[in-house]
Design a binder for these strands. Structure first.
Lengths: 210, 210
DNA sequence: TATAGACTTGTACCGGGTCCAGCTTTCTGT
DNA sequence: ACAGAAAGCTGGACCCGGTACAAGTCTATA
């Protein structure tokens, strides 16, 4: 588009200028594998695509695939390196003024936006093979350490029990929203669901109706 | 202990008299495999014991192992057939008078008691290999259909979103209690944890302190 | 006691995941 | 610009969990 020999990557990633060739190639490979994988999987279904298929179609060896993704599931659920950065920014946002549960709702909505793009595909895959739901929870657990630390800092005395309870409950609410969302509905609908679930869970489910 | 030829099973299981030879042998095999597996695993650790090891030590073939347990993890987490019966009894208990969340707490406490015996071992295994936590959640999902239906019946209009939210949140509270429990503490301590977690989650976590 | 049906077994196979030794590519210091 | 260090890629061997299947063995039933 500009100079010849310039990787297509730089269009999507202004950081490319700063990265060495090594890093740039790595990111490019990551994205190639991911998009190839998603194409194959969304076409044939998760179980009908083997890691070899993905590796082959990506022009890479099986071994290399596993050097980029720790498991077959990860290629569906892992965040793009840039999105990981956005996730960290979300947690770093110094909105110390908000009460815990509101701040947590904000973070959840931010996370929802990060997941937005691949969510419809993921929901379709869930319907095909429910075992994947488990794996997705696994992958979401990648956020656990960061998020728990974030919660802990906002919890009186950093009480670990309370921290864990808040984390797990928020996670439950978030998962419920994902479960309940119909990919045919708008994305705003999904955000509303996330908000509602967190509000209800935060307000307490013991009351007959909220 | 009494008449010769009488299976040791009948001491534990008065139903044995009613069961045919087939069923009795099956239950006996199930228990042999389970206890052999737990012995090996608690000694060497989960990953260091293969299904072949278990099958071999149980005097049974690998194929047969998988006809009793759907996965290697299941041999650690599945409920004894008799316990499954107790679980169903728990759900059938017609305490329609209690409000949903209290009734749910009762059910959770009942479940806790069913899990009691193997919980210390399971917690030790969790520490060794955190991947197992996931599998345990999997296995607990075996309760999901029953429990969701149970909740749905007690939810206004059987609203599926609310049902899912209640289920997931209760599950989160229960898991938190399991996470937080130290196997060196008494079992009553664990029950108290379950109660507390459910109470807090039910009362709403958005409040600064409960 | 014979037969239908359940249970077991060995074997072969698939696919995910790890390990390793050797090769190619990029980076760094001079 | 070049040499050596370091990082990355590759194929192949291997382990293990899980499934399929055909053949055998045992229990139930009439």
């Amino acid at each position: 588009m500009t100079r010849p020999g310039k990787s297509s990557l730089s269009e999507h990633c202004p950081l490319a200028a700063v990265m060495g060739l090594r890093e740039r190639k790595k990111l490019e490979a990551w994205r190639t594998i991911r998009s190839t994988a998603l194409a194959l999987i969304s076409e044939r279904g998760f179980d009908a695509v083997s890691v070899e298929d993905i590796a082959g179609a990506s022009g890479v060896s099986r071994t290399t695939f596993f050097s980029y993704f720790p498991s077959k599931e990860a290629v569906v659920f892992d965040l793009d390196p840039l999105e990981v950065q956005q996730w960290r920014d979300l947690l770093a946002d110094p909105r110390a003024d908000l009460p815990l549960w509101e701040a947590l709702t904000d973070v959840s909505l931010g996370l929802a936006r990060l997941l937005a793009e691949r969510l419809p595909l993921q929901k379709r895959l869930f319907e095909q093979s429910p075992e994947l739901c488990t794996s997705s929870r696994d992958t979401c657990d990648a956020f656990e350490p960061d998020l728990k630390e974030w919660i802990s800092r906002r919890t009186p005395d950093g009480d670990p029990l309370r921290t864990a309870l808040v984390y797990n409950t928020a996670f439950a609410a978030f998962s419920t929203a994902i479960e309940a969302w119909d990919p045919d509905d708008s994305f705003e609908h999904f955000l509303a669901l996330v908000r509602d679930c967190l509000r209800w869970a935060g307000a307490g489910l013991a009351h007959p109706v909220s």
